[in-house]
Structure formats: structure tokens, C-alpha cells
Amino acid sequence: MLNWGSLFYVFLAAAANVIGGLVFVLKRHWSRKSLNALMALSAGLLIAIAILDFIPESLEHDSSSPIFILLGVLAIYFFQQYVAGYFHFGEETHATQHEKSTAVGAMAGMLIHTFFDGLSIAASFEVDFRLGITVFIAVLLHKIPDGLTISSIIYILSKNRTKAMGAALLLGISTLAGALTAFIFADYYLPGEQTVAVAIAFSAGVFLYVAATDLLPVVNASGDRRAALFFFIGILLYFLLQWGTNWLAPALH
């Protein structure tokens, strides 16, 4: 039986996703240059997470992970070309098929990612309290950027603050769902390392596609070199978060 006291930490992690969305939507006006900068920042974060975090982690547990990275790319491409046109994105936005697939692709990757965030926090507390705290901090450090990233992508595509905030809220709900899944199935079955590796690899493919095919081309087409610099800032932010994790974690062992 899992430690239900760990649910408090899962709630904190889920709340951080929502806070990230609030950081974005509370700013009343976003200029085109600001939106381009946010797209570049989001692309940098997604690519860094996929290449430096998701791919190595998936390969560590399953040598066949590259095929699932490719499947993640192919799934989003297929969705963009053949499926997205049949989804209702909101009449007021007049979103194109390409925009719909970008939004759904980004959400799919993020939801898979946050689901396993919640599952990892809950499961690690069952092993050891200090391990649970370490995993919680590692997850918490990227939660606000996750909320900010998905809210900015959804707002840029829909021009709707409610949908942008809703996207961040869904990440929080997905985190809670992952933890609740761990609680419910703890006495029967928890996803093994290979299952988790497949999900992470698939998310890596989704993130790479969304960043390289949907976000960066828009930034490049704008010709705004200042906005383009935020791509590098997004990657730098990833390293800062990793440094924060490594700095805090040893004190908890």
C-alpha cells in the first residue's frame, strides 16, 4: 500500500503546473515579438528536455527506445496530415489544421510526461521518504516551466487565455492521475521500467517534432533575431533547472 501522505507533495507538484500557466495568462497584453520569444523559449526547453533528459533515460531502461522516438514523430505527423482537420478547435479561432495538430501534439507529449511525474513521486515515497523528497524536488523544478510552455503554445495558436490556462490545469490533473494510478494499482501492478521508457521515448519524439517543425519555423520566419535568442535561453533554463536539482538533491540523502 502506497503512502497516501505523499499525495500532499503530488498536489504541490500539480499546483506548480497551474502556477506556470498563471504566470503566462496574468500578463494582459502579449506583443507579436513577445509571442515569438515565448515560442523560441518553449522550443528550446522542449528540445533540451527531449535530447538531454527523455532520450538518455529511455535508452537506459530499454535499448529499443529509438523506435518509439520515431513513432512519436510519425504519430504527430500523421495526426497533422490526416486527423487534425476533423477536430473542432473553436469557431472563434479559425485555427488551421496545422495549428490544431501542433496544439494536440504538444498537449499529448506534456500529458504523458506529467502523468509519469505523478506516478514517480507517489512510487518513490513508497520506497523511501528521502528518495520521495528528492524525486519531488526534481519534478517540481520543471513544473512551472512546463505550465508556462504549454500555456504559451496554446495561447499563441488559439488566442484564448481560458484555453491557455486550461492547458496548464490539465497538466496538473494529469500529474494527480499518475499518482492516483500508482495508489490504485500498487498492490497489483505498477508500470515496469520498459513501459515507462516507451512512454518517455514517445514523448521525446513528440517534443522534437513540435519544437523543430511547428515552433522554430515560425520564429525563423519572423526574422526577429532578439526573439530567436530565447531559443538559447530556453536551453540555458533547462541546464539551470538541472543544476538546481543536483544542488538540492544531495542534501536530502
Rank of each mutant, 00 (worst) to 15 (best):
G5D: 13
L7K: 12
V10N: 03
V10D: 01
L12W: 10
A13S: 12
A13G: 02
A14W: 02
V18N: 05
V18Y: 07
G20P: 04
F24W: 09
F24R: 07
F24A: 09
V25Q: 07
V25R: 11
L26C: 13
R28K: 14
H29A: 15
W30I: 10
S31W: 04
S31C: 12
R32V: 10
A37H: 01
L38I: 06
M39K: 14
A40D: 00
A40M: 09
L41N: 02
S42C: 06
S42N: 10
A43G: 04
G44H: 11
G44E: 07
A48S: 14
L52I: 01
E60D: 11
D62N: 07
S63A: 15
S63V: 15
I69N: 00
L71S: 07
L71M: 11
G72I: 01
G72Q: 08
G72E: 05
V73E: 06
A75P: 06
Y77R: 14
F79Q: 08
G85D: 10
F89S: 15
T93I: 11
H94C: 02
A108R: 10
I112H: 07
H113E: 09
T114K: 02
D117K: 01
A122V: 06
A122K: 00
A123N: 13
F125K: 08
V127Y: 11
V127C: 08
R130T: 09
L131P: 02
I133K: 01
F136N: 00
I137F: 10
I137M: 05
A138L: 12
L140W: 13
L140H: 00
K143N: 12
D146L: 02
L148W: 09
T149N: 06
T149D: 06
S158N: 02
K159D: 02
N160F: 08
T162N: 07
G166E: 00
S174Y: 09
T175P: 01
T175I: 05
L176P: 05
A177S: 12
A179V: 05
A182Q: 06
G192L: 10
A197G: 00
A199V: 13
A199G: 07
I200N: 11
A201N: 03
V206F: 11
V206T: 14
F207I: 06
L208P: 01
L216R: 05
P217G: 03
V219P: 01
G223F: 08
D224A: 04
R225V: 15
R226V: 14
F232T: 03
I233T: 01
Q242A: 15
W243G: 06
L252K: 00
H253A: 10
